[in-house]
Amino acid sequence: MIQIAVFGDVHGNLPALEVVLKDIEQRGIHQKFCLGDLVDFAPWGNEVIERIKSLNIPCILGNHDERIAFDLPVFPLAKHSEEETKARFIAIDHSKKHITEENKKFLSEFPFHLKLNYKIGNKHWNIQLVHSSLESNDTYLYESENDEVFTNMLEDSKADIILMGHTHLSFTKQFENKKWAVNCGSVGRSKEANRLASYAILTLDDEKIVPEIIQLKYPLEETALQIDESGIPDYYASFLRNENVLIL
């Protein structure tokens, strides 16, 4: 049996990341992978990057990582309110100003996606990691998508399971061919009502893969207070407190 921990969408939230890393360690899981989006919306972008770097955790390129690494322009999203649009521009500009050049370079070197192969007995398991999809790191795929969306991705990647993030909403879906699509949720900026830090554990043996979503409490109010005291808009503290009207 092998266990693998997969997490992503930390978004500068170091307290949430530390709780997740501690839980993974306490479970004795050594294989860890990150689905990207280390930065934006909480004040510890550099510290989160340094933590991932110090632990040598393989990480793929999230859309926020890419924007900060390459100083890409920010465009408003139709789904966002005027308030969120304004806050988003300010928060991303904060990251562009405060993430160090060394850490921007580190982000710029992330692979776009990763394919893993684990052998247990005579069985090879193919595991595909993406931020949001095979073609894009900025596509919103929800649990409600037609199954064909995910089975096509599995077929294209020749994978037994595909793990993604980006939407900040966790789910596990198994299909008739016994293959899986899993969204790990978000470590640092969950859009689920409970606002818990979320990640996934895969348990592999020579017959099956079993995914499990783990959700953990972290010092959310302390984190929100730190956002209030930073140059990041208070909108994101209110978001963690679940005070905003959420548009998915």
Rank of each mutant, 00 (worst) to 15 (best):
A78P: 01
D37G: 09
K96E: 10
R27G: 08
L21Q: 02
I49P: 01
L107W: 09
P15F: 01
I29A: 06
A87Y: 11
E50V: 01
W44R: 06
I99F: 09
N117M: 08
P15Q: 07
G28C: 11
H30L: 09
I24V: 07
R51Q: 11
D71S: 14
V19F: 06
V20Y: 00
E47Q: 15
K123M: 12
Q26N: 15
I127M: 11
E83S: 15
N46S: 10
R88E: 13
G28P: 06
E102H: 04
E25D: 14
A91E: 08
K22P: 01
I92G: 02
I49F: 05
I92C: 05
H124V: 12
L38D: 11
A42P: 01
I92N: 03
S108P: 10
N117Y: 02
F106E: 00
L38E: 12
I68R: 07
I127T: 12
I92Q: 09
D93F: 04
Q26M: 14
D93P: 01
F33Y: 15
K115W: 00
I57V: 10
N122A: 10
F89W: 10
Q26D: 15
S95T: 14
K96M: 14
K22S: 13
L116I: 09
L107F: 12
L77P: 00
R67W: 03
C59A: 13
L61A: 07
K97W: 04
E82H: 10
D65A: 08
P58A: 06
E47P: 01
E66Q: 15
E109H: 11
D9A: 11
L14N: 00
E109T: 12
I24D: 00
E109S: 12
D40E: 13
N13F: 02
